[in-house]
Design a protein around this nucleic acid. Sequence first.
DNA 1: TGACCAGAAGTGGTCTGAGGACTTACGCTT
DNA 2: AAGCGTAAGTCCTCAGACCACTTCTGGTCA
Lengths: 232, 232
Amino acid sequence: MAATDKALAGLRQMIASGELGPGAKFPPEPELCDHLGVSRSSLREAVRSLGALGVIESRHGSGTYVSALDPAAIIGRFSLSVELIPLEGVLELLEVRRVLEAHATAAAAARQDPELAARLGAVLDQLESTTDATEIQHLDAEFHGLICAAGGNPTVTALTDVIRGRGGHYRIFEPGADFDAIKQTSDRGHRAILAAITTRDPAAAATAASAHIAQTELWLRALRPDPQPALP
Amino acid sequence: MAATDKALAGLRQMIASGELGPGAKFPPEPELCDHLGVSRSSLREAVRSLGALGVIESRHGSGTYVSALDPAAIIGRFSLSVELIPLEGVLELLEVRRVLEAHATAAAAARQDPELAARLGAVLDQLESTTDATEIQHLDAEFHGLICAAGGNPTVTALTDVIRGRGGHYRIFEPGADFDAIKQTSDRGHRAILAAITTRDPAAAATAASAHIAQTELWLRALRPDPQPALP
DNA sequence: TGACCAGAAGTGGTCTGAGGACTTACGCTT
DNA sequence: AAGCGTAAGTCCTCAGACCACTTCTGGTCA
């Protein structure tokens, strides 16, 4: 087995065996090298690998630690790779978002939380009064994010956040001939979702969310050929 | 900005800008070091990071390449981290699987594919005639995997695969007092799913799949306190 | 002419050693 | 008791050397 792979397996084993739980500190690098039988270079490459996956965190001057192993945080690491996926793959991901967000929106509607409806309404008021693409994207993310969070499953929220972030690189709301029509359709979709949440109708909420995201999928398909995504 | 982060950003930018598409080859390491202004160690750590995320592949003696950037393959990389998530987080993930797999199962039922039903029936025949925990797990994965694949979205299949793989580390089917009852309930759940697919009833398929996975969630909850997962 | 094989060039993989940068904790001073 | 400087601990970066694997090239042999 290659040196880096050996180190990788050793580090994972230390976590999986329960020897080191969430937040625990690893021994210093020289000690780990000795324990795993690899050089410092190989060990560090293995640590970087697990760091990229959100399993390990290295803190300069302090030490190397097991992360919280929180599913939402780990899924958040997806954004580093998902942001590089071409449009073709983004459409597959959007189907995932559509299904998950319909579920979360229904769950949010089932809860009796008048404050949520009030906050969503405030966001939509802002959203409907702006034509700035960046602000639209930001407010749209806040609207959907609030709903998903109210759905009660942070993992679902993290997944939909990552996918929404990728889709956001494609600028649907560029000034152009269709801008007004697209904006109006989008605004109506948001109001339909809010109405279902306000009236506590989970089935209607799921349908409205699903339809809204399906509409986004259609707009994205129209954007082919694949434009270049903008990295943050 | 730290050296490794600088290299990481540079590599991602080369992909995001379209300079290097899926499958493209990076310049040799010394050239990249010069271009990015970092040492070879730092560059290699950055390459390992993107390698762990499934964005880059290094082939010994050949070169470093951009991966296919296929969403299913990228999601598959997450098994490395998901396998380390504690039970508490696995339950959140199972809700994701339940929702996605209900969707995929409905899609599979909507398709008119007699061959799928035949293959599923064969798998269930084997599954019902064994009591070996490892074989049960394997056949269960094949059953659900075939259905998800028939659903038509490889990304959904990859996600459910990863989550199912994590859940499989918890041995529900250990020989014990409840073994027979659990096995029978599980078998009945599978038959209900197959029946819905055979009769091409998407709604029934979604319900059956959702109920089946919800049952798994209940069994897992009963397993607390968290047992140690077994790495492959 | 074709297939096969050996060598050379190109490239990533690993190790070692050194010095720098940051965090943390200790002990001193006020 | 609070604040601060110092020292120890730890990770970060660089440089150079050598090894292992892949790929291509050229020659040899059937």
